[in-house]
Amino acid sequence: MPAGDAFTPDQLYDIEKAVRYAEETSGLHFSVYVGGADSETRPFAIELLNELDDPDRTVLVYVDPAGRRLEIVIGELAKRQLSDSSAGLAALTMQTSFATGDLTGGLVTGVQQLGTHAHQPPMLHANDEAHKL
């Protein structure tokens, strides 16, 4: 891999695959940022979320490897599908992997977990006239 890059192409592919899985499962947008923060991590992560195209329906995972901080920010509408406690569980999963130096594994597992928790089962017969009240 090129010197100085955070991830190899294979690792990037794995993370992008996990992001796609989470998006297809939940219908939400997922974004992952790995890098340092100029200030406190939480406001920085919120600013990153606001830069995205649809921040209300987006889940942002922010990782600061140097500061050893992780932030999961859930948009206003996405919050209906993904609770803070679910995000906390995913954060714990990622935290465990990050502590051993496995950034890729932590991100893949954590993002998949977020997508699974945000999954909403399809409403069967929702458009069926016979089942409408």
């Binding site: 901080r69 920010v73 803070d84």
Partner: peptide
Amino acid sequence: TLGGASASW
């Protein structure tokens, strides 16, 4: 009213 979680290691 954003949701989310934080962690450090």
